[in-house]
Every structure is written in structure tokens, then in C-alpha cells.
Design a binder for these strands. Structure first.
Length: 770
DNA sequence: TCAATGTGTCATAAT
DNA sequence: GGATTATGACACATT
């Protein structure tokens, strides 16, 4: 069956591709849906290769259009829609928006291959996957960024519709996928896709089918669902053609009135750069790299590649400095605006902010991942040499300068020129304090080596929602052991609950006599029933032990999977038993327990009794140790008054109560101690991360400040060098200086006067401090 | 055999 | 002042 399905699938796919290549438009799904249900079941069942087109059909019916894909009017209809969408999407600066998710799917270590299934969020939440996202070059920062990056991605997902890898083609074609306009439908698609791909995830032939699916996606218009021949096999050429086509459409068919949203959306581009201080004409400069490409396709392609390489660096910035994104200043923050003259840092932060807040824009930026070139549809294959091999935060930050280099006119982009060319020296090399960088690196390494404290806190919240004494037993692994042991002891099921605390009355040698469970209901071992079962299984384990292991386990998350194993961890403290019991303290074989003779169970439980329980039984104490320990003092005294007890018995009872309470107190104390240690550890890691972030921000600010100063200095020298006196001679820099007036004018004043004014200005802040 | 760890118990102070 | 709780210290068992 599988072979038949594969045969049919591949054969039909190849046939479809061939037909498409020769210009015949074929929509297999139409036939599969309406005419060949068995084949559809066979092929569509677990195969993800067909879900895309199926979704198109779904959309065609679900979004209300209701146009049959094979309708004669479909050409005009879809062509008009596609062209309109092209025009509309043109101004959105659409670069492939979904490759990142496709890449995530491919990189998923769990092997989930569906990019459109709803579980993509799970993929994003996977820490390993996130580390993969950061790329191998970002290992230094993985530990620090994995949590923040996850949050960042979640933020992106919260704003932007979840997109999948099977949209790649439409991104290349138009940029704006249909999902951009119909998110709800996309969710429906994902639901269907999940059903369809449940089996596909286990299909070993996915890679082949996935490649075919990608190739097939190239033949299906992502926006209209229309199938059309793959006219341009090369991704880059296709991208260029799409742009050219769009531009031609823009010029030929669309009046400006129809592009009323164009400038508004252009702002979405300019918002990515600190345009607050830009002159209005800059937008033209900003657009020029894209719009002027119609005249020179090569230039357009070259600029497009440059842009993609820049965006790629931006994406790496997203992957590697999420904390900076999370902590970065809001758009209106003075830090972001005041540095607008030096575009490096503000651009970086603004872009990051938009990546975190604007879905479309963020996706557009984030898809430039180093893995994009692995997809045969993007034009980023030539970008690989541009990808910095050492993608540290600082290097990726430098990448943002190239963005300014592209968007800003050269005369305003002195800093970008400093960093754009490979032949130019790295400006940061002379600007940054090496010690500071080393500190950052060491800090990142230190953080990386430790367990992520945020994850630890999450685990702590998950496993111990109550930091106090009482634990929710439903969250405790002891409930597992409870369920496991529920059938092991019949006496456990008959354990009687007395008032607030349940006393475990297990059968002993004399069936009527009671054994005692020292672990009472007070403290954080709240559920004595489970404890009884654990004791019945020979595990001393009590709730705090499990709690402790839970806490220890989130030092290493992998240990979380071993929780059932914990029931065997408990120490067999046979020293609690009476010497007579120690003689035969060996655990009974499991077969004996399974055979379940009550006497053997009674012997076994008898052996598990604590020392005080044996003493109490030896002294013929008429009530359980559990009552002795856990009853309130009034009830306890009332209980004692009911019986005629000897002094020895009363003394033993008081000792039992004291030891029992102290035992629980010790457990609580140890639990609190461990909690304190873990909280301190987490606080230390948080502080280290904050310190590293602040250091990075400081470095960036210093770098921006330095670059601004350099720029101002160069402008100063340039202006000053052009000044001439009445005789046409240049002014001496030692005698004259330029001073900036408050109204924006520049005055030439004697150096001495300038020095005096400078001193006055220096004194003012000092006086204010005083 | 030794070290690390877990646990119960005691003594003592604090509540 | 007694009961309870918290905690350091110790001993013992287990790994």
C-alpha cells in the first residue's frame, strides 16, 4: 500500500511538473478531491506534499470566493487577483517570510517535518530547536538567548500569523502570501494539515516528497492557489523577475491613486531605520535601491543580495541578542532617537523592536537565516559568503550598519562606509575595550554552562507551584507511585482517614493491631495516603524526597524523564527498625507480593515499620503513631485521657510525637534550605545575564558615541578646512574654532573664546551635581 | 574503602 | 510555661 501510494504520488507529481513545465496547468487536487476519492485517500493520507494545494482548494471554498480552480474564468480571476496582490504586496518590502519556519521544521530534532502543522509553536518552544536557530556559530550566546529567543519568537507568533514552510514560493513570487490576509483560514489549514501529516511525519520518504512538495510549490501560486508553469527555475532570477514584473505593473497599470497605501507601507520600511531625524528626502533614497532596479536588473539583483545579506545579519541579531530585544528601548526612547545620527545602534534596536512587534516586518527580517540557502527557492544561496562566520552579537550588530549603508545616502553614511567594505578595518576593533569584550564573552560562557535559570523557574513553577510548606500532591510524582501502588496493597486502600490527617492502618501480625505511619499529614508531605503506599512498597520516600528530586532534576532537565525511577531512589533506612526486624529485613521477592498473601504483606509491612512504631507496638500503645504525631494538642490530650496509660507509655508517646514532629520539621527545613539555595542560584544567573546585557548595551552606546564623535570631527574638519579669510587664506585651527549655536548656525570664533565657553559648560553639570 | 548524599534524631533557640 | 517550629549537628545507611 505504501509503495503504491508512493508510486502514484511521485508519478503524478512528476507528471504534473512535466505538464506544468510545458505550459499546461494542472491542479491534481481538483481531480483528487472530486473525482478520485480512493486515490486521494491513498495519496493524501499521510503525505504532506499535497496539503498545500489542498489548502488552496479549501481556501477557495472557505473564504467565500467559491471559484472552482478549473473554471474558465479562473484565469482572469486569478490573474487579476494575483496582479492586484502583486501590486499591493510590492510596497510591503516582502522578502520570503516563511523560510524560517520551514527551516525550523527541517531542523527539528524530533523529526517533525510539517511546517504547516499547528505544532510549529512547539517547535519554537523547543530549546534545542532554538539553539539550532541560533546556529552553530552562536554557541557562546545560546544559553543566554534561548529563553529570550523563545519569548521573542512567541512574541512574533503572537502578532504574526503562523506561517509555514510551504509558502516559500509565494513569498518569492509576491512576497505577501494569502495567509497574510486570511489567518483564520490558515488555522483551518493547519488543522487539516495536522491530520494529513500525522502519518507523514513518520514517513521516511518525506525528504523526497518534501523536495517534490517544494518543487510543486513553485508551481502553485501562493496567493491565488493558481497553478502555473515554473517559468523561472532559478530562485534569484525568479525573485528579480517578480520584482521587475511588479514594477512594470506598478508603472504600467496602477495609477498612484491605487497605490494610496504605498507611502504608508513604505513607512514600514523606514520605520526599521531610525528615520526620526532623516530629512524627508531620505525616503526616496531609501526606495531607490529597489525602485530603480527596473532599469538595471543587475543592479537590482546586486542590491537585493546586499539587502538580503544585511537582513540576514539582522536575523542573526534577532537570534543572538534576544535579551537585547526584550530589553531594548521603546521606539520613543531617547536612547533610540538621540543616536539617530549614528545609525548603527538605533537601527539595530529599532529593527529588533519591529521584529518583536510587527509581524510582517519581523518575519521579513527574520527569515534571513543562514539556513535559507538550503532551500532551493530563495536567492540567498549567493549570500553565504556574506554571512559572518563568527556571528557574535557585536558582529551581527555591525551588520546593521550595512543596512544604513544601503538606506542612507553615502554622504550621510560615513559610518556605514567604515564598516561596509571588507577592506576597511573593523571600527569596533579600535573602539571597544578588549577587557570589556572579554568580560562579556566570559559571562556568556558562564551563563551558557549553567542551566537556564528561567527554565529552572518555569520548571519550578510547574512542579512546585507552592513555595511554602504544602505541596500539591497532584503535581507530585508521588501520585504516580500512588497509582502504581494502588493495587499492591489492599490494606492501603482501606487506610482510614482521621479528621484532618489520615492514618494508615496497615495490617500487622495481629490483624487487629495497627501499624503506624510516621510520616504524617502535616508539613509538605501532605498526602499520607500516597505515603502509605510508598511505605508499603518499601520506599522510605516521602513527599519531600520527591520534591527534592524534582528540584534537583531541573538542574538537568533530562532527569525529569526519570521521575518514575525516583520511587526506587529512596533509601531503605532499616536502622529505623527494631533489631529483630533488621535480621530479616530483606525485601520479599516481587513474586511474593504478586501472589499477595495477606500474611506476607503483613510481614512485609511489619518490617517496614519504624523504630517508634515497633516501640509503640511493643508498649501496646492503643492508637496509631500517626494520631500521636498529627493530632492537635487538645485532641491529643483528650485521646490520652481516654486511656489508662503507664508512665512509660506516656513517655514513649510524647517521644514519638516529638520525634515525629521534629522529623517533619527537619524535612521542611531541608526543603526550605534547598529552595533558598536554588533561588539564590537563579538570582545570581539573572544578575549575570542582566550584567552581560548591560555591558553589551554599554559597548554599543560607546561605539555609537565614538562614531558620532568621529563623524562630527570629520565634518568639522571639512567645514573648517573650507573656510577662508578675506585674503583667501585658511584659518588656523590653533587660533579659531567653530562653535555651534543654539539656532543651528555655526560661528567662527577665536580659540580662546571657545575654550572659555567650553569650560563654562563643563562647570555647569558639576554645579548641578553639587 | 572512601566520599557524597539522604535521612532520622537530638539539642537548642525561636515562635 | 508548654507546645510547636526551625535549624545546626551528628550518626547511620545507601550509593
Amino acid at each position: 500500500m505504501l509503495s503504491l501510494k508512493k508510486y502514484l504520488t511521485e508519478g503524478l507529481l512528476q507528471f504534473t511538473i512535466l505538464l506544468s513545465l510545458i505550459g499546461v496547468r494542472v491542479d491534481v487536487d481538483t481531480y483528487l478531491t472530486s473525482q478520485l476519492p480512493p486515490l486521494r485517500e491513498i495519496i493524501l493520507g499521510p503525505s504532506s506534499a499535497y496539503t498545500q494545494t489542498q489548502f488552496h482548494n479549501l481556501r477557495n471554498t472557505l473564504d467565500g470566493y467559491g471559484v472552482h480552480p478549473k473554471s474558465i474564468d479562473l484565469d482572469n480571476y486569478f490573474t487579476a487577483r494575483r496582479l492586484l496582490s502583486q501590486v499591493r504586496a510590492l510596497d510591503r518590502f516582502q522578502v520570503p517570510t516563511t523560510e524560517v519556519n520551514a527551516w525550523l521544521v527541517h531542523r527539528d530534532p524530533e523529526g517533525s517535518v510539517s511546517g504547516s502543522q499547528p505544532s510549529s509553536g512547539l517547535t519554537l518552544e523547543s530549546s534545542s530547536g532554538l539553539q539550532d536557530v541560533t546556529g552553530p556559530d552562536n554557541g557562546v550566546r545560546e544559553s543566554e538567548t534561548e529563553q529570550g529567543f523563545s519569548e521573542d519568537l512567541e512574541d512574533l507568533g503572537a502578532v504574526a500569523p503562523p506561517v509555514s514552510g510551504d509558502l516559500t514560493k509565494e513569498d518569492i513570487d509576491l512576497g505577501a502570501g494569502r495567509e497574510t490576509f486570511d489567518y483564520s483560514h490558515r488555522q483551518k489549514e493547519q488543522d487539516v494539515d495536522k491530520e494529513l501529516q500525522d502519518g507523514a511525519e513518520q514517513d521516511d520518504t518525506w525528504s523526497g516528497e518534501g523536495a517534490e512538495a517544494l518543487a510543486r510549490n513553485l508551481l502553485v501560486d501562493g496567493e491565488t492557489g493558481e497553478s502555473f508553469p515554473a517559468q523561472v527555475p532559478g530562485g534569484e532570477d525568479q525573485t528579480a523577475l517578480s520584482l521587475e514584473e511588479c514594477l512594470r505593473l506598478l508603472e504600467a497599470t496602477c495609477p498612484f491613486g491605487e497605490n494610496a497605501e504605498f507611502p504608508a507601507d513604505i513607512s514600514s520600511i523606514t520605520e526599521a531605520v531610525p528615520s526620526e531625524s532623516e530629512p524627508p528626502g531620505l525616503q526616496n533614497n531609501l526606495l531607490s535601491p529597489l525602485l530603480t532596479g527596473t532599469d538595471s536588473p543587475f543592479d537590482l539583483e546586486q542590491q537585493w543580495q546586499d539587502l538580503m545579506s544585511i537582513m540576514e545579519m539582522q536575523a542573526m541579531e534577532v537570534n543572538t541578542s534576544t535579551n537585547e530585544i526584550l530589553y531594548s528601548a521603546p521606539p520613543g526612547d531617547p536612547l533610540s532617537t538621540n543616536y539617530s545620527l549614528a545609525p548603527n545602534t538605533p537601527i539595530n534596536q529599532n529593527v529588533s523592536l519591529h521584529q518583536a512587534s510587527l509581524g510582517g516586518c519581523s518575519q521579513d527580517f527574520s527569515l534571513f537565516s543562514p539556513e535559507v540557502e538550503s532551500l532551493p527557492v530563495a536567492s540567498s544561496s549567493t549570500l553565504l559568503p556574506l554571512v559572518p562566520s563568527n556571528s557574535t552579537s557585536l558582529n551581527s550588530t555591525f551588520g546593521s550598519t550595512n543596512l544604513a549603508g544601503l538606506f542612507f545616502p553615502p554622504q550621510l553614511n560615513g559610518t556605514a562606509n567604515d564598516t561596509a567594505g571588507p577592506e576597511l578595518p573593523d571600527p569596533l576593533g579600535g573602539l571597544l575595550d578588549e577587557a570589556m569584550l572579554d568580560e562579556i564573552s566570559l559571562m556568556d560562557l558562564a551563563i551558557e554552562e549553567g542551566f537556564n535559570p528561567v527554565q529552572a523557574s518555569q520548571l519550578e513553577e510547574e512542579f512546585d507551584s507552592d513555595s511554602g510548606l504544602s505541596l500539591d500532591s497532584s503535581h507530585s510524582p508521588s501520585s504516580l507511585s500512588s497509582s502504581e501502588g494502588s493495587s499492591s496493597s489492599s490494606s492501603s486502600s482501606s487506610s482510614s482517614s482521621s479528621s484532618s490527617s489520615s492514618s494508615s492502618s496497615s495490617s500487622s501480625s495481629s490483624s487487629a493491631s495497627s501499624s503506624f505511619s510516621e510520616e504524617g499529614a502535616v508539613g509538605y508531605s501532605s498526602d499520607s495516603e500516597t505515603l502509605d503506599l510508598e511505605e508499603a512498597e518499601g520506599a522510605v520516600g516521602y513527599q519531600p524526597e520527591y520534591s527534592k528530586f524534582c528540584r534537583m532534576s531541573y538542574q538537568d532537565p533530562s532527569q525529569l524523564s526519570c521521575l518514575p525511577y525516583l520511587e526506587h531512589v529512596g533509601h531503605n533506612h532499616t536502622y529505623n527498625m527494631a533489631p529483630s526486624a533488621l535480621d530479616s529485613a530483606d525485601l520479599p521477592p516481587p513474586s511474593a507480593l504478586k501472589k499477595g498473601s495477606k500474611e506476607k504483606q503483613a510481614d512485609f509491612l511489619d518490617k517496614q515499620m519504624s523504630r517508634d512504631e515497633h516501640r509503640a507496638r511493643a508498649m501496646k500503645i492503643p492508637f496509631t503513631n500517626d494520631k500521636i504525631i498529627n493530632l492537635p494538642v487538645e485532641e491529643f490530650n483528650e485521646l490520652l485521657s481516654k486511656y489508662q496509660l503507664s508512665e512509660a507509655q506516656l513517655s514513649l508517646i510524647r517521644d514519638i510525637r516529638r520525634r515525629g514532629k521534629n522529623k517533619m520539621a527537619a524535612q521542611n527545613c531541608r526543603k526550605r534550605k534547598l529552595d533558598t539555595i536554588l533561588n539564590l542560584e537563579r538570582d545570581v544567573e539573572d544578575l549575570q545575564r542582566d550584567k552581560a546585557r548591560l555591558l553589551r548595551e554599554k559597548v554599543e552606546f560607546l561605539r555609537s558615541l565614538r562614531q558620532m564623535k568621529q563623524k562630527v570631527q570629520s565634518l568639522y574638519q571639512e567645514v573648517f578646512g573650507r573656510l577662508r579669510d578675506e585674503n583667501g587664506r585658511p584659518y588656523s585651527p590653533s587660533q579659531y574654532a567653530l562653535q555651534y549655536a543654539g539656532d543651528g548656525s555655526v560661528l567662527l570664533i577665536p580659540r580662546t573664546l571657545a575654550d572659555q565657553q567650553a569650560r563654562r559648560q563643563e562647570r555647569k553639570p558639576k554645579d548641578r551635581r553639587k
